[in-house]
Design a protein around this nucleic acid. Structure first.
Lengths: 163, 163
DNA sequence: TTCTAATTATGGAGTAACTCAAAAGATCGT
DNA sequence: ACGATCTTTTGAGTTACTCCATAATTAGAA
């Protein structure tokens, strides 16, 4: 499942459109990165690098850092950074959804936000701050880690994420 | 305001008690760290190191990393890690309060949680996860950064935090 | 109070996850 | 196809840690 994904090919057209709509040039690393993120929501940088390389051959890590930063800035990609985890990236943007993170293996799952737009919650006291977003991170144990409780056998398998 | 703070001396007794209650030995770096955190909620490691040194003289950075980790484990201190920021530490534990973070300067303020115990929110769909905490981070602009909008003059002054 | 066992601090090395900058290369409007 | 502009490469540098072996300190027993 490394060369010529049908899924990728099918999405390629829309990726090009997405990039153009954001005023960005279409380059190999950008298309490949979008392809990885469609297949692996919540991928970290290292996963994106590995997957993009398996598709395109040699690509510098710096290029991927640039691509991800550009896509985030262009609002095609959202970056999250749960405590203790490196940055994770996802294609789902604009719906202000939230995340559940497993304390043991770091697996991430999406949770729809009941409100759906930012900020979905507002505190009673804002200390003079002007708020535009409420980010909610739920912490707990994923199904797999619940099974192997006590024997803390983390990091061997993941769940909803695909690192 | 560097040597012999009255505040510190007043709190010293209760710090000793806190440590003993958690089954921890009372050492200089630990007492000094607690002292710093009472004066500067949301201090980062580097701030704690600097302040502890100004009080005790030479203390290794590693010692402070150890102290902070120990205090967090003993539940005397809470560690938060807003995206884009190094770890921050605070003495307020056990009330499940939340935080407002300034997008420009990183200043952090506390927000009381209406519910007050964990988890204060529960999502509709948990994907099989067992949840024990809902962490809310509000993002926005602190009063000082609102004043200097557009001219992005961040990082010069802080607000509620004291880095 | 002194000793001993366990814990804690030091110093030095090492790592992950980035960021910065200059030069070579690719993209796209014309 | 051309050239201005944007991307990628290459390589160095930074931050915020973590790991380890050794030395120092502490708490509680004798």
């Amino acid at each position: 499942m490394i060369a010529t994904e049908p899924l990728q090919d099918a999405s390629r057209e829309s990726f090009v459109e997405m990039l153009r709509a954001a005023g960005l040039r279409t380059t190999g690393p950008r298309l490949a990165t979008l392809g990885v993120l469609i297949q692996r929501p919540h991928a970290d940088t290292e996963t994106v690098i590995r997957q993009v390389r398996s598709e395109l051959g040699t690509v510098s890590a710096q290029a991927i850092y640039n691509v991800l930063a550009t896509l985030v800035q262009g609002e095609l990609v959202r970056r999250i950074e749960p405590a203790g985890s490196p940055a994770l990236y996802e294609l789902r943007v604009g719906d202000n959804h939230h995340h559940i993170v497993c304390r043991l293996c770091g697996a991430v799952a999406d949770v729809d936000c009941a409100v759906g737009h930012r900020p979905c919650l507002t505190p009673s006291e804002t200390h003079g701050y002007v708020l535009d977003e409420a980010e909610v991170t739920y912490w707990g144990y994923c199904p797999k880690c619940q099974a192997s409780r006590g024997s803390h056998s983390a990091s061997t398998t993941e769940e909803t994420t695909g690192n």
